[in-house]
Design a protein around this nucleic acid. Structure first.
Lengths: 91, 91, 91, 91
DNA sequence: TGACAAAGCCCCTGTC
DNA sequence: GACAGGGGCTTTGTCA
């Protein structure tokens, strides 16, 4: 009964899957802690953590902004008087 | 140029659409905040917010779905020797 | 037993809370469907839904971008050669 | 100007920090995709992904926490007349 | 089915 | 030192 096959489900296979996931998630947690350490050190050296996070986020986002359906967007923004080059005059 | 028709797009109509969406989304945000308030009050009165969320989620599910979920979970836990009824003897 | 007080929890009060949450969530769903309708109509009239979504998102984000720790961010971006005005030449 | 020191901030050091974070986050993403693959394979072999997620989550919880959650839930469901054991008679 | 948006959960910071 | 509040990340559901 320890190793069973219930509802067509292989218990052994299930165990393997769950073990693997738990191992990978454990690594992921470690990585997360490592990242946190880097931020902590940065803070200790006088950097502003929040700003670094912002920079990292921006660098991630840039690529998708650049290729994305830019033309259509420009048309719509123009129609709304939100063209980027005019934005600061928008009051 | 303020009211233009570029690429077959009516700027005025576009404005109306976006205004309407923003108005509706604003209402939706308000509602979300209201819901959050209710949870906060509940918490202040000693209720466990997480459990209330679970209950609300369960009530959303059709009873059959809920049973399916439960049954499937039981099967998997059994396969792993984690059946709830046996749990306390597990250690 | 219908109206009970178990573990210091008032069943009646709990019912009220859950009813209220469910009512508010129902309204929220309605609103979401309404918004969806507006997008559908826009599409039927020849607008590009995805672009409208982008515009709406941009209009939401602008305010927070503008006030947010801008100076610090500029400093950091400069240090990395990512100053916004130089960005398009960055390639 | 490439290597500058603005506002007391070392550009080079900042670069190192951000590079390190991005490298670690990249690894974290890879790991996340790997985990997703495992789930996909499990699904392809007939397992129920959602249930596996539930099992993994349960195994992460300390047994006492798990019991607490369960007990609290039982209390709330009882208060609402939704106790599982009575459910099928409920209609 | 694959991407996109919304919701829930958790950590972290500021405050009392 | 604890706790409420906010922000970020992960996960879940939905739409094309």
């Amino acid at each position: 009964m320890e190793v069973m096959n219930m509802g067509g489900v292989s218990a052994d296979q299930l165990r393997l899957i769950i073990d693997k996931i738990e191992r990978l998630e454990e690594e992921k947690v470690q990585l997360g802690e490592h990242i946190k350490d880097v931020y902590s050190e940065a803070k200790a050296e006088g950097f502003d953590v929040k700003t670094i996070r912002t920079v990292v986020r921006m660098r991630k986002m840039k690529p998708e902004e650049m290729n994305e359906q830019e033309e259509m967007l420009e048309i719509y923004l123009s129609a709304l008087g939100m063209r980027r080059s005019e934005q600061q005059e928008a009051s």
